[in-house]
């Protein structure tokens, strides 16, 4: 069981700072969390975002692998639905920042 960080924008940075301490952090960007600058993503974490939150904000391309490369980040954001999020919640400890 790892730690699953649920991140919104308002004070999501506090959560990402803690996730940076965590060797196996899993981050999920919820609603306005997708607006957080990718520069703040923890370098070792797996990053997910809710697909419909990303799409309705017109950010699908912005969080793509190419965009990450523009920030010199070696990772991309994987888009998931709520069913996959529930699986992640069931498999991990939830760290709430949303």
């Amino acid at each position: 069981m790892g730690n699953l960080y649920l991140i919104n924008k308002e004070y999501g940075e506090n959560g990402l700072n803690l996730a940076s301490q965590d060797k196996e952090a899993i981050v999920v960007l919820l609603h306005d969390g997708v607006y957080i600058s990718p520069k703040l993503y923890p370098s070792k974490a797996k990053i997910y975002a809710i697909k419909q939150d990303v799409e309705k904000r017109g950010l699908s391309g912005k969080l793509s692998a190419k965009y990450m490369v523009a920030f010199s980040l070696p990772k991309h954001v994987e888009y998931i639905d709520y069913y996959r999020l529930v699986d992640l919640i069931a498999e991990n400890k939830v760290i709430n920042f949303a």
Binding site: N3, Y11, N17, L18, Q21, K93, V94, I95, N96, F97
Partner: peptide, 17 residues
């Protein structure tokens, strides 16, 4: 320091924000 706050997080069953 954040390192120790992370340890508290590790030791907790649940978190609330």
């Amino acid at each position: 320091p954040i390192k120790e706050i992370f340890l508290l997080l590790q030791g907790a069953d649940f978190t609330m924000d």
